[in-house]
Design a binder for these strands. Structure first.
Lengths: 340, 340
DNA sequence: CTGAAAGCGCTTACAG
DNA sequence: CTGAAAGCGCTTACAG
């Protein structure tokens, strides 16, 4: 047990060859430079000692850590794990490892985390924490590291991003409700400093306009994407718009908060009020009533983000790109014909 | 933008001092060795250039990467994110960063991931992937790296672990059901190669025995902790034990599968069959009916795992420890009085 | 085909 | 209090 860590030099000494020869053998790309017989001897000895190249040392020498940092606002939010999975799946294929870090929503804390990641010499950063005007991205740009945002984007579009087509999701939702006869539809407006919150709001208004329902739109602020905020916003919506028959929640967590609110008031969904969420996060088909929501391909989003970052790593001059995934409305039991 | 990366040597050159002097200033622990006036000059210049020490180089020199690898079987399983969060929260306080990696359940793939992590010179590993007899742990032990398992443990107890007290959880569940008048209780037995599956099964049998119900216990295998497997296992249970009035699922996902099965057969929960899950994962209070389940402190579990690893990092000879967290039964709407 | 040497950016024991 | 030097484990341009 507890074998002493074997190095190139150690192996070379045992084999009576030069360390650089061993090094050449260990790298498949340079192995051909070494004689067959020596290659065999080296490989055998390396295996015998469980030799594992020290990637830190390699990183130091080559200036490439083969590490990509991923910063998340909150990994317990179910939309992020599939994104991370997608990122990992794709990057692993290319020899990169992910340094994941939860940083919360606070920009100072995020800056701290980015500094930690940069100190570890990550080759690139994928940020799921972007705000519409993001000082952390400025910091990354100053540091000269490749950056991509995922799920959210900046207004300035200084960096490439992979996002959901929010306008389309809202359009599908509104179309669905209007087809069911709804006319008074409330949108619980998500955080406006996030692209998702902002674009869903815009998309909602555009979709209403397309149906000629744009005068006096029903909007209620929901300052964070949480169940608690959703409950409070729904409470307010029911008071401010008593004639509303449908609620378009900022996301699924907010929609679950609406369920809490309705339940507390003895209102039924969808008989009294129809509800639509956003994200189709896991298990919203198992809640009661099963939630109608906008499905986003989160795993794919992660894969795309990884590809963008690989692209910018391969070509430092590659331009800024926005990859926009198309969502799909998943109709379940929380939406029904308009009452009365 | 895109400032050239500043180094100790570069700063020293600008300041006209020796690199080691700059190095001493950058480390608060050695700063006192340098004259006040020089300290001020160095600090100022470092700030001006946004100097960020290269931790890779430091790691190489000191032999400490300040990196802890965390290997997960599946980050989309909602029990793991809070564990990761707990680990990160605790390790961050001590200057460590987490290298997280999803490896799935396959041992070869896990071995590959561990090798990747070791090549990055992680100081320690936290494994959420442990099986009762785990070759990957053998590999880690051979490599001489500090290891701790979380959520699951090995039978051999070669390494420290943080686990839930499975026996107690099952005891609480059975007590609750018996108090409601249930006598025919089926356990959907989780994977037996995992400590959780094994110990819950044992705990179930012990709990039955404590109530004098141990003859002919109702057991149905549920080979994986998924909703699909839960549905199939529930289907089988209803056929094999038609007189059963309660089902103790292997975990919450399995319990959700039971809901699917009951719904498909037009059976009501809890009127026809009571269901208990395990984990109290997010949103199981929002499913219908709200799930009675055993709550595990997952965040705390992560914190404890981080502390165990820090302990073993501080004292390489520290003995093997098993930290067992006490669960709590959360009674909701999926359990009710025994029918008939 | 193989060897010898330099250097990535730090830390730290040794001088002075 | 500051400097000079060695070395962590690699990679790679240069010799031979």
């Amino acid at each position: 047990m507890q074998q002493k860590k074997m190095t190139l030099k150690g192996l070379a000494q045992i084999l009576g060859v030069h360390p650089s020869t061993v090094g050449r053998v260990m790298d498949p790309a340079t192995r051909h430079m070494v004689g067959d017989e020596v290659v065999q001897r080296v490989l055998k000895e390396a295996a015998r000692h469980g030799y594992r190249p020290n990637k830190l040392a390699a990183a130091m020498r080559t200036g490439q850590s083969k590490l990509v940092g991923v910063m998340l606002p909150d990994i317990t939010n179910p939309v992020f794990p599939p994104i991370v999975l997608g990122i990992e799946d794709e990057l692993r294929k290319h020899g990169y490892l992910v340094l994941m870090s939860n940083a919360g929503e606070d920009k100072d804390q995020q800056r701290f985390v980015v500094d930690q990641l940069l100190a570890r010499q990550v080759d690139a950063l994928i940020l799921a924490t972007a705000t519409r005007d993001d000082p952390v991205i400025t910091r990354c740009l100053e540091a000269g590291v490749a950056v991509v945002t995922v799920n959210r984007s900046e207004d300035g579009a200084r960096v490439s991003s992979v996002v959901n087509d929010e306008a389309q999701g809202m359009r599908q939702s509104v179309d669905h409700l209007v087809a069911l006869g709804h006319r008074r539809i409330v949108h619980l407006v998500g955080p406006q400093h996030l692209s998702t919150g902002h674009l869903r709001r815009e998309g909602f208004l555009q979709a209403l306009a397309a149906h000629g329902l744009a005068d006096a739109p029903c909007l209620v602020d929901c300052p964070s994407y949480t169940r608690e905020a959703g409950r409070a916003a729904c409470d307010e919506a029911l008071v401010r718009y008593p004639d509303a028959t449908a609620i378009l929640a900022g996301n699924d967590l907010v929609a679950l908060g609406c369920y809490d609110s309705l339940r507390a008031r003895g209102l039924r969904c969808p008989e009294d009020v129809s509800i639509i969420g956003h994200n189709d996060m896991p298990f919203v088909d198992a809640v009661h009533p099963a939630l109608t929501t906008v499905r986003i391909g989160h795993h794919d989003m992660g894969v795309q983000a990884a590809q963008l970052i690989l692209r910018s790593l391969a070509d430092g001059t590659a331009g800024v790109l926005e990859v926009r995934l198309k969502p799909a409305l998943v109709v379940r039991a929380s939406t029904g014909a308009c009452r009365a």
